[in-house]
């Protein structure tokens, strides 16, 4: 359900990825496709040159030479640039605090793709729609009280999902007790994709 201007979401659902627990197996990446875009199981996201998944995998190296891994996705920002730049009001926030797309309003201009500081969106080759977390499959799962596919797929307990407004949710407890960060914290977007730095 689309929130009206000034209305606050009842829940603030957020993803959490523990980089200190992630074994980089990509089960989440593939499960995301299988759950949300099964029609893309044998097709690449040519725009980004990879699997048509809402989760992207990056590798890097620290200044000390230590290899690092980053899994990135839509952060369902509290001040989402994609919402502000969409000329047609197609990008909106729902009652759970998730940033959603109303495909009926989307004209395919891709302003949202460009404005995302996290490069989280990809364009569906058939529909031209800008895709991102959460896809339809996971939205349905969440509506049924389940965790999204990436959380259920993870073999190392490196992913979680829950309500930041609920102090007893597992994500709230983790964020209270463990060192964590968000990406580009000064972007003004107020992202809700949290990277936990310790197990």
């Amino acid at each position: 359900m689309r929130l009206k201007p000034g209305e606050q979401p009842t829940r603030r659902l957020a993803h959490l990825w523990n980089e200190a627990a992630c074994i980089g197996c990509a089960a989440c990446v593939i499960s995301c496709t299988a759950t949300n875009n099964p029609e893309m199981l044998y097709r690449a996201d040519e725009g980004r040159g990879g699997v048509a998944s809402n989760i992207r995998r990056y590798e890097g190296v620290t200044a000390q030479g230590r290899p690092t891994l980053l899994l990135n996705q839509c952060a369902h920002c509290d001040e989402a640039p994609c919402m502000k730049t969409c000329p047609f009001g197609a990008v909106y926030r729902d009652e759970n605090g998730l940033v959603r797309l109303d495909s009926r309003r989307c004209a395919g201009c891709r302003y949202c793709v460009t404005s995302c500081p996290y490069n989280a969106r990809w364009v569906h080759p058939d529909t031209g729609l800008p895709m991102k977390c959460m896809g339809r499959g996971c939205l349905a799962l969440v509506a049924a009280g389940q965790k999204p596919a990436c959380v259920q797929a993870c073999p190392a307990n490196a992913r979680d999902f829950g309500d930041l407004n609920d102090p007893e949710s597992s994500v709230s407890r983790t964020l209270r007790t463990k060192r964590h960060r968000t990406l580009l914290p000064n972007s003004g977007a107020k992202p809700k994709y949290f990277i936990v730095e310790e197990v």
Binding site: T35, P38, E39, D126, G135, R136, G137, A144, G145, Q146
Partner: peptide
């Protein structure tokens, strides 16, 4: 779309069962 509908059907069905 047909492909999108297939995804939704699967997802909704899955969610029903997951519930």
């Amino acid at each position: 779309t047909a492909a999108g509908a297939a995804a939704v059907l699967l997802a909704e069905g899955w969610a029903d069962a997951a519930q």
